[in-house]
Design a protein around this nucleic acid. Structure first.
Length: 604
RNA sequence: GCCCAUAUGGCUCAGGGGUAGAGCACUUCCUUGGUAAGGAAGAGGUCGUGAGUUCAAGUCUCACUAUGGGCUCCA
């Protein structure tokens, strides 16, 4: 048996550890390295080692489950003491001590009946056992420590050297919000030291581009304790960035036949009762009372658009009718889930509702998908799409669901865009496509969504006059592309690490006049840029030239333009282009051409 | 909402039971410099909020607020 053998893979791709395999196993061996399967074994064993250490430090600890997850492993357990970040070091130290004891990891099997007796005093293990259908269960043992476990494990503790406990958290027993909360410790492990080090470095790098950190540095947005959680403020720099994004998207909507509309922030509660939000979404709504009537602040924009549609009589000739709004919505998210700009309580959706006939669904969805693709390409985003189909509890006829779901599939296949299917994951009122962006550190965020809705038109008795003069009910397609400006800008910030492309950058050009005599020329240029819709600043503070250049660079402004005697005389500019990291000189006219060209890149 | 942690001038952070420190930023002055921090002086906080313990509390305790890490991943 090889020194580095830690398991085998069978025909089905399942891992068999050395404890289970026996001497003459013919399956493909798994060597001790950083392959996916190898890491799975290593990390699972490290979780057990951690449990053993915890048991020694906290003898009353009871363990629930300790699986391998995408980002390492964790173990859920119950202790009487509080465990904080500081304690992780102690546990790590104990783990290292245990390794020195050179324990082998041994396995034996017992019947479930015996196991129930063995763990009679451990309600957590009994809970685990109750979910195992098998007759026989396995126990893994290392030194004094024994644990009910499916495996797989490395043969001995000597394989577990390169690990780090990363965080301590609370986790509900079985993920159930109403259940008891256990302590959870997360960790990561690799086969070698170098990989662990690289991983930790990568995490530190990712942290540097956290949108909250960059948002504060660049003065994009802020929160305020006195005003309340999850309520963002946009500072001038952030507002300039957001405005540019709004403008780019505004034009993109007009080109695609959308019409701008706007509904009120607050509507009578009866409206929300009719829509079903009051019953289904009421917990997340902010309600208030005015002159004896109950009102609700809108959590969604659909109702407003429906009222606008209904205000005048519509013909089949008007369809598809596309209304869009940068709709400000308020949702009472749980305090614990708020997260920078990525999850807030007030946000603005790039929301649109397309009223169309059922047979128009496919072509409309296709157009939206193309719109989404254009936006994603503009920012070089990777994204995936997922179609969610009819859930068990749903309204509407099967035939209509069929048309709508097929419409969604046709649209994606017609555009040769890959998608996955979430069977039964649709909303009760219709199927949907979710668009998920992968951000700079690999996290997936749901941003855009395309939902087909048969429900609201019904509830609000929306109608149009058909060709044969009969009254027909349109279908509504709800769609958002960014999802919300808040979340999208948060993701953009991390994606670009604050180095926004020229057409988005809050301040696009910063002029640095060498001395006071050059300031007038700088201000004249600034004015010229303003007329072209380009945001610029003049850095004429009483600081040294070097200092002002440094400050400008730190602000991540795409163009730093130095103005001295030479430039004033020749009507030229000396450019430090931060995006391409080059320095060069241009005439004023050439400069304007270059900037205008860059602005064009923001067109979709 | 729940678990754990954190909360000191605009920002980043040090301090620590006897009435607060640094760097950056800010203000003023000198300096007018050709591509990442010129120099000097100055102003600014009662230590998240409220209560409690104590002769005495940023410093200990409790509550609240806010922020951060988590709460699908099933022996």
């Amino acid at each position: 048996m090889s020194e580095n053998l830690i398991g085998y893979i069978d025909d089905q791709g399942s891992i068999i550890d050395t404890q289970s395999a026996g001497e003459n196993c013919t399956a493909a061996p798994i060597e001790f390295d950083n392959s996916e399967k190898s890491l799975e074994i290593i990390r699972h064993s490290t979780a057990h080692l951690m449990a053993q250490a915890i048991k020694e430090l906290y003898p009353d600890a009871q363990f629930f489950v300790g699986p391998v997850v995408d980002e390492g492993f964790y173990y859920d357990f119950r202790v009487n003491e509080k465990i904080g970040e500081e304690d992780l070091k102690t546990i790590e130290k104990k783990m290292k001590e245990l390794i020195k004891k050179k324990y082998k990891i041994e396995k034996y099997e017992i019947s479930k009946e015996e196991a129930l007796k063995k763990f009679a005093n451990d309600d957590l293990k009994l809970a685990v056992l109750s979910r195992i259908p098998d007759e026989m269960v396995s126990i893994y043992k290392q030194g004094e420590f024994e644990d009910l476990c499916r495996g797989p494990h490395v043969p001995a503790l000597r394989f577990l050297h390169n690990f780090k406990l990363t965080r301590v958290a609370g986790a509900y027993l079985g993920g159930d919000e109403n259940a008891e909360m256990l302590t959870r410790i997360y960790g990561i492990a690799f086969a070698d030291k170098e990989s662990l080090k690289n991983y930790l470095t990568m995490m530190a790098e990712a942290k540097k581009r956290d949108h909250r950190k960059i948002g504060a540095e660049m003065e994009l947005f802020m929160f305020n304790e006195e005003s309340g959680a999850g309520l963002p403020f946009w500072m001038p720099q952030g507002a300039k960035l957001r405005y540019k994004l709004e403008q780019i998207l505004h034009k993109a909507h007009l080109v695609r036949g959308y019409e701008p509309v706007r509904g009120p922030e607050i509507l009578k509660a009866d409206m929300w009762r009719t829509s079903g939000h009051y019953a289904c979404y009421g917990e997340n709504m902010y309600l208030t009372e005015i002159d004896g009537h109950e009102y609700g602040i809108k959590p969604m924009n659909c109702i407003g658009h429906i009222q606008i549609f209904k205000q005048t009589q519509k013909s089949y000739r008007d369809l598809p009718l596309r209304y869009y709004e940068y709709g400000v919505v308020h949702r009472h998210e749980k305090s614990g889930v708020l997260h920078g700009l990525l999850r807030v309580r007030e946000f603005t959706q790039d929301d649109a509702h397309i009223f169309c006939a059922p047979e128009q669904i496919a072509s409309e969805v296709l157009e939206v998908v193309e719109f989404v693709d254009a936006v994603m390409k503009l920012f070089n985003f990777e994204y995936t799409m997922e179609i969610s189909t009819k859930p068990e509890k749903a309204i509407g006829e099967d035939a209509v669901w069929e048309i709508a779901t097929q419409g969604l599939k046709d649209a994606l296949e017609g555009n040769s865009l890959p998608y996955t299917i979430d069977e039964g994951g649709g909303a009760f009122y219709g199927p949907k496509i979710d668009i998920k962006i992968t951000d700079a550190i690999g996290r997936k965020w749901q941003c855009g969504t395309i939902q087909v809705d048969f429900n609201l038109p019904e509830r609000f008795e929306v109608e149009y006059v058909a060709e044969d003069n009969s009254r027909k009910r349109p279908v509504m397609i709800h769609r958002a592309i960014l999802g919300s400006f808040e979340r999208f800008i948060g993701i953009l910030t991390e994606h670009y690490a604050g180095e926004f492309p020229f057409f988005l950058a809050p301040t696009q050009v910063i002029f640095v006049p060498i001395s006071e005599s050059h300031a007038d020329y700088a201000y004249a240029l600034k004015k010229k840029l303003t007329l072209e819709g380009i945001d610029s600043e003049v850095s004429d503070k009483n600081d040294s030239l070097n200092k002002r250049i440094r400050t400008a660079e730190k602000q991540r402004v795409p163009y730093v333009v130095i103005i001295g005697d030479e430039e004033v005389q020749n009507h030229s500019v000396a450019i430090r282009n931060r995006r391409v990291r080059e320095q060069y000189n241009l005439t004023q006219d050439e400069f304007m051409v270059e900037l205008t060209k860059q602005l064009q890149e923001g067109k979709i």
